[in-house]
Nucleic acid binder design. Sequence first.
DNA 1: TAGTCCGCTACGAAATAAGTAGCGATATTA
DNA 2: TAATATCGCTACTTATTTCGTAGCGGACTA
Lengths: 109, 109
Amino acid sequence: MTTPLPKKLVRGSSSGVAIMAVFDLLGRKWNMRIMWELNSDPLSFRGLQERCDGMSPSVLNTRIKQLTEAELVFTTSEGYKLTTLGLSLMNTLNPLRDWAADWEEKISK
Amino acid sequence: MTTPLPKKLVRGSSSGVAIMAVFDLLGRKWNMRIMWELNSDPLSFRGLQERCDGMSPSVLNTRIKQLTEAELVFTTSEGYKLTTLGLSLMNTLNPLRDWAADWEEKISK
DNA sequence: TAGTCCGCTACGAAATAAGTAGCGATATTA
DNA sequence: TAATATCGCTACTTATTTCGTAGCGGACTA
């Protein structure tokens, strides 16, 4: 039988807890994409849906709720927008664009 | 009936394709976490599993294959390690740690 | 030879995402 | 004012992904 693994491992310190929450949030389909699209423009529900390859409205709805709860997105009369916190996240994620281009180039040989 | 949405929207240019692939890869449960852990140390299969809260070995196995395919991870006699490409990705993702701390602070009020 | 640990696989159950129809509200047009 | 259209969003079913667990075959050890 497989050795039971401890469910939680005591790590070096309390640091590293916050980043795990970020991984939980961003490591879910569509969340990064939605924020990326909102970083360009504020968008309506259906507009966001179109930009995100026609993703399911049911999922979009739960994503918006999550991101709103996380204070990264909020609703206005002109549609959904990033909060200051959301904008700052997209700023830290911005270098990903260049990395991605580099990666694609090297991967495709 | 719901208006059919166009499955693909013509965007401004060819730029932005690579970043979508990155979102696909990183927007999957465990992928960021695995790379984060490997950025600290090279780890064995079971070691990686422990660090990742005892995640299922079946999922871990498919993740390792994906990340290897993406040339972000490779296998050595001492365990799994990040490639140069993988290291550079973690470098661009590094500011996330600080952002996460900031976010947690503001969120918990 | 028997015991232990390893990377990894198989497989059923649970959770998440996709896909589609359509409701109620508001806006627009006839 | 009535018909039409569009909106955000919900309710459902189906498909895909992830989880949890048992355990195989190989390498090492006693």
